[in-house]
């Protein structure tokens, strides 16, 4: 019984093996979750080819269609729902976690790889021709599935149904009937507050667009609530400006049409208006 594989398969392995490896490493190492998913797709496609090469064409097809096609798309859906840009920070918060994981991983891989290599040094390549009886891969799987593994197969169907129901229960948002407020109610509630309109963004009607500069209300007062809490309100004139701006002069000067709006409402009230 032979132990070595054919030349074509060797070529396929040595081409797709590194690709699968790169896909796995890329998935773990890329900060963007979408990239991770795409790297994983890479690996899974390689696996599909491996299955086909290893006399499991049905599994290869399932791998590509179900895994790569359905499950990975499901991952991408969820990623889009959760927020595509929620990338991990590089800083590891658990002390020693990364180091310990890498050391353990290398040790584990070394142990498993060495152990398997040692244990399967003389592994024969029996091939599935005898087991399949010339009927082909799919009939052989079907026969086993519906005879010896029938019970497991049926239980699996129950598992899938349970999983589907469970996913629906978990993802469903329960709202009490009638708790959804109508537009009229929302608008009435808004007008009962101090500020019916929207909040001004920082720097609106102002001479600078820094977040530290409060917005100016239409009557010229600074809008205190346009600032994020914890920020010290700044005078636009005292803020550092880009050098290019200095050459162009102040925005007021550039516009020329607007009166310089005093920031101090008291000073403005002291005027003759």
């Amino acid at each position: 019984m032979t132990q070595t594989l054919g030349g074509g398969e060797t070529v396929v392995f040595w081409v797709l093996g590194p690709i699968a490896l790169a896909g796995a490493l890329g998935m773990v190492l890329s900060r963007n979750a979408v990239h991770s998913a795409l790297w994983l797709v890479n690996t899974m496609l390689s696996f599909g080819v491996f299955y086909v090469v290893q006399e499991a064409p049905f599994l290869g097809a399932v791998q590509i269609i179900v895994y790569t096609g359905a499950i990975m798309i499901l991952f991408l859906f969820v990623l889009m729902l959760v927020g595509r840009d929620s990338s991990d920070s590089v800083v590891e918060t658990l002390r020693g976690q990364r180091i310990a994981a890498i050391i353990l991983g290398i040790g584990f891989a070394g142990l498993v790889g060495a152990g398997i290599a040692e244990a399967t040094r003389d592994l024969p390549v029996t091939g599935l021709d005898g087991a399949q009886g010339g009927a082909g891969n799919i009939p052989a799987i079907a026969e086993l599935l519906f005879t010896r593994y029938l019970l497991a197969f049926e239980v699996t169907s129950a598992l899938l149904i349970t999983a589907a129901v469970g996913a629906m229960v978990l993802a469903h948002i329960e709202r009490e009937p009638g708790s959804r407020r109508s537009q009229k109610e929302l608008s009435r509630a808004r007008f009962l507050t101090d500020r019916p309109g929207t909040l001004p963004g920082p720097g609106v009607f102002a001479r600078a667009d820094s977040v530290a500069v409060p917005a100016i209300l239409p009557d010229g007062r600074p809008a205190e609530d346009s600032l994020a809490t914890g920020l010290e309100p700044q005078e636009p004139d005292q803020m550092p400006r880009p050098t290019g701006r200095e050459q162009l002069g102040s925005p007021d000067a550039a516009l020329g049409t607007l009166d310089p709006a005093p920031l101090d409402p008291a000073a403005r009230d002291g005027g003759d208006r």
Binding site: L94, Q97, F108, G115
Partner: peptide, 22 residues
């Protein structure tokens, strides 16, 4: 993740024992 780390460490230990014994 800490729990998973100890899980992996335990698996590695079992593996080590198996390899050493075999």
């Amino acid at each position: 993740r800490s729990y998973a780390l100890s899980l992996l460490a335990g698996a590695a230990l079992v593996l080590l024992a198996l390899v050493v014994v075999n």
